[in-house]
Each structure stands twice: as C-alpha cells, then as structure tokens.
Design a protein around this nucleic acid. Structure first.
Lengths: 124, 124
DNA sequence: GTCCTGCTTCGAGGGCACTCGAAGTCAAGC
DNA sequence: GCTTGACTTCGAGTGCCCTCGAAGCAGGAC
C-alpha cells in the first residue's frame, strides 16, 4: 500500500491540494484521510480510487451536495445499495438528456460553421 | 414583423426577463433592443433568432465573455467572417473534447451501476 | 541552530452567471 | 383620479465551486 502526500495525490488525480482538502472538509471523502505522525495527510490507493469516482461524478455535472449524499451512502456501508443505484441512475438520466441537448445545439452550430466556411473559402 | 414584450420574449426563449436584460446590458446582443414609446423593450424576430444562438453557445458551455466577443464580431459586420469561423471552430473542438470526456466518465459510471444492479437484483 | 520546503488550519476572497429588490414610470381600467 | 400591472434602471445579493493567503509547525540540509 503506497501512501502519498497531498502533493502527490494532487498530481495523480489532476486536482490541486487545495481542492483535495476542500473535498475532505466538505464531506466528500469516505472518512478522514489518514495522517502521518506530523499531521500530514497520507492518501491510500483506496482514497485515490474514490477521488477518481468523485472526479467522474463532478465531470458529468453532479453537484457537490449530491456527491456528498452518495459518499454518505457508501460510508454507511452495506444495505443501501438500492439508494445508491437510484442516485446513480437518476444522474445518468440527467447526463444523457444533457448530452442529447448539447449534441443538438452542436449540430446547429456546425450548420453555422458550414455557412462561414463557404463564405471564407470562396473569393468573396 | 412581430414585436414582443420582454415577458413574451422570455417565454419564447425559455429565459427570464431578468436574464434578457442582463444579456443586453452585458453586451451579448447585437445592439440595443428597440423600445416602444413608453421605454419598454420590443423584441423582433431577429432578436429572438440571435438569442437562440446565444442559448446554443451558452448551452454548449461557451462563457459569457466569448459570446460577447462573438457578438462584437457579428455586430462589426462583414469582413471578419474568418475570425467568427475560428471562434466557432475552437468552440466546437472544445465541446467535442468535453463530450468525449463525459461519455467516457459516463461509461465508467454505467459500469458501477451494473454492479449495483447485480447486487440489488439478486437476493443478497 | 537556522533555513527551506511542504505541509497544517481557518477564514476570507474570487469568478461566473445569474437573480432579486427597491423605487419609479406609464397605460389602461374602473 | 386612483389602482393595477407590466415594465424601467441600478446596484446589490446569491449559489456554486473552488482558490488563496496568513500564520504556524515539522523535518532535513548545511
């Protein structure tokens, strides 16, 4: 088990040390990150895996408070899998709707791009 | 040419009257929206078409300041089509990258969902 | 032993995109 | 002529998500 400093964890996760501390204090982690004797945080592989999950949820637009809710369920342990599933399914539905919307808007923007390419490409 | 009040424009665009005023005062419109004798705004079809374009750009994640830049180019009139094209192409590239990222994350979340569905579906 | 680096906490600050509220005006209805 | 309601302006407030800075401590290099 490798235990990383916050700087190393920041580098591997693509987040900043500030953000990692913020996530922890905001209740997004599964518990308190372990500490060295000096009081410095030590991130385990488990921590990194969980942070990656947070990153995926955040990158797909889940608000911090919902990530917190999900984290609370995972923290609570076995028995609430149905709730976790419902939360993730609701999230997936929203993401897919948003993807469809964005794709539609992008097509319209592409149409506009096509018009400009015609104008710019031709002499006048 | 139908000229709509701000309330009607808000309803058709899905934005609020507050947001329409905010867009105008922030330089996102192509010029000042026309006024009735009373000083009330009157939105033309052209205005609505442009607001739809703003909506598409915003919905695909373009920041307000870039929309403003694009609006300034359109406002300036003929001759800068290459710049407008470059702006839109850069935006499209970013959106496509983001779509790919989101899709990737969504697949990973789906995997997680699959695991929970297995757990919840089975007896234990 | 003092200097540097990297961490710690805490609370404040910042950026973005709205969102709202107060105070005032105007036209229409009764 | 007074009320109502939809509008006007302006500046302040809100919510989200970080992001930063100050002040302090621990451990190693020299």
């Amino acid at each position: 088990m490798t235990a990383l400093t916050i700087a190393q964890a920041a580098e591997r996760t693509g987040l900043t040390a500030h953000t990692l501390r913020y996530y922890e204090r905001d209740g997004l982690m599964l518990g308190s990150v372990e500490r060295a004797g000096s009081g410095h945080r030590r991130y385990t592989d488990q921590d990194l895996t969980w942070i990656q999950m947070i990153t995926r949820l955040r990158a797909t637009g889940m608000p911090i408070r919902d990530v917190r809710r999900y984290a609370a369920l995972v923290r609570a342990g076995d028995g609430n899998e149905a709730e976790r599933l419902a939360l993730l399914l609701a999230h997936r539905r929203r993401v897919e709707e948003q993807l469809a919307q964005i794709t539609g808007h992008l097509r319209a923007i592409d149409h506009k791009i096509g018009i400009y390419e015609g104008k710019v490409g031709s002499a006048g």
